[in-house]
Simulated assay, not measured.
Amino acid sequence: MPQSKHRAFLKWAGGKYSLIEKINKELPKAKVLVEPFVGAGSVFLNSEYEAYHLNDINEDLINLYKILQTDSTHFIAEAEHYFTPQFNQEAVFYQQRERFNGSTDPFERSVLFLYLNRHGYNGLCRYNLSGKFNVPFGRYKAPYFPKKELQFFAQKAARATFTCLPFQQVMLQSPDDSVIYCDPPYAPVSETAYFTAYSKQGFGLDSQEELAQLALHASDKLGRFVLVSNHDTAFTRRIYKPAKLRKLSVSRFISQKGDSRKKVAELLAVYRPKA
């Protein structure tokens, strides 16, 4: 574990910054850390492995990471241009969101992805069924430009391989000397709380069950250590029954009203390979 914690440069629903110590305590030593759902990368940024395989189904996210890996100086200079009062206006935000949705250029989309993430409501990443980013304006006084966080990510990305593949493929093709950490879109705490629009593909209950089955397979058949994060519900306790479960209490900050941002119960499901 690094001596100082590093924040992700993206605002991220369900980010693992506050749980880093507890997650790292569970993760064993290995050559490679495999993350099929890397998200904003807090575990990557705050762990020490020789190499990383970082995957996500969100193509915009992975393209941004690849550009930072290979062209960080240019990217940071271009992105900083958008963190001025001129661009922190509602009409301008929606103009840039429309520009993002109409662009096919990976560099332009990556710069605008960071802008939309920091200026949009609560740092949400949400797409409609047509694949259009649809998060509204966030109305922040002065959105923070995460220059030092971008620079640290770019520096550490030299150890990483980034892919945009189905999680099943990533887990099944994990190398021998690796551990797997899964932070999927969370199962709903209630029937009205399901959020599946992180990518066009969504992540329903069938996907949750498939991930749990694959975690057990990777542990029992492939000899991998697998750690999975999720909400603590009757459903997740059922699908993770073969694993060792560790209960956590975590503050979440996605609710609109501050007084309703309560602690929620989460689980770490630990799958240890058979000796």
Score class of each variant (00 low, 15 high):
residue 178 S to V: 09
residue 26 E to G: 02
residue 230 N to H: 11
residue 185 P to D: 08
residue 26 E to R: 15
residue 46 N to I: 10
residue 266 E to H: 02
residue 222 L to H: 02
residue 190 S to V: 02
residue 244 K to V: 06
residue 178 S to L: 07
residue 45 L to A: 05
residue 157 A to Y: 01
residue 174 S to H: 03
residue 38 V to I: 13
residue 222 L to K: 14
residue 261 R to C: 08
residue 96 Q to V: 08
residue 262 K to T: 13
residue 12 W to G: 09
residue 208 Q to F: 09
residue 38 V to W: 04
residue 234 A to I: 13
residue 118 R to G: 07
residue 6 H to Q: 15
residue 243 A to K: 08
residue 211 L to W: 06
residue 273 P to V: 11
residue 191 E to T: 12
residue 230 N to S: 10
residue 32 V to Q: 06
residue 98 E to C: 11
residue 46 N to L: 10
residue 125 C to F: 05
residue 47 S to K: 06
residue 112 L to F: 04
residue 47 S to H: 10
residue 32 V to C: 05
residue 217 H to P: 00
residue 50 E to S: 12
residue 197 A to L: 00
residue 101 N to R: 09
residue 142 A to M: 03
residue 257 K to T: 02
residue 272 R to S: 15
residue 9 F to I: 03
residue 201 Q to I: 01
residue 60 D to W: 03
residue 157 A to K: 06
residue 250 V to A: 12
residue 91 A to P: 00
residue 16 K to W: 09
residue 273 P to R: 10
residue 29 K to V: 04
residue 83 F to Y: 05
residue 264 V to K: 13
residue 225 F to S: 00
residue 137 F to M: 10
residue 49 Y to E: 09
residue 26 E to D: 00
residue 226 V to Q: 05
residue 206 D to R: 14
residue 187 A to R: 06
residue 236 T to G: 10
residue 115 Y to E: 10
residue 129 L to F: 03
residue 87 F to D: 03
residue 200 K to F: 01
residue 21 E to R: 11
residue 1 M to E: 00
residue 64 L to S: 04
residue 196 T to W: 01
residue 70 T to P: 00
residue 205 L to P: 07
residue 132 K to R: 12
residue 191 E to W: 03
residue 77 A to M: 02
residue 82 Y to N: 08
residue 202 G to T: 04
residue 211 L to D: 10
residue 197 A to E: 15
residue 32 V to H: 04
residue 71 D to Q: 10
residue 59 E to I: 14
residue 155 Q to G: 00
residue 14 G to D: 14
residue 1 M to Q: 13
residue 213 Q to R: 14
residue 99 R to M: 06
residue 191 E to R: 14
residue 52 Y to V: 04
residue 229 S to L: 12
residue 151 Q to A: 14
residue 7 R to W: 05
residue 237 R to C: 01
residue 2 P to K: 15
residue 80 E to D: 02
residue 83 F to C: 07
residue 270 V to R: 13
residue 211 L to K: 05
residue 79 A to K: 03
residue 4 S to R: 11
residue 161 T to M: 07
residue 239 I to D: 08
residue 117 N to H: 09
residue 174 S to M: 05
residue 3 Q to D: 14
residue 186 Y to Q: 06
residue 149 E to K: 10
residue 192 T to R: 14
residue 8 A to P: 11
residue 53 H to D: 00
residue 231 H to D: 01
residue 80 E to G: 14
residue 127 Y to L: 12
residue 181 Y to R: 03
residue 11 K to H: 08
residue 187 A to M: 07
residue 117 N to P: 13
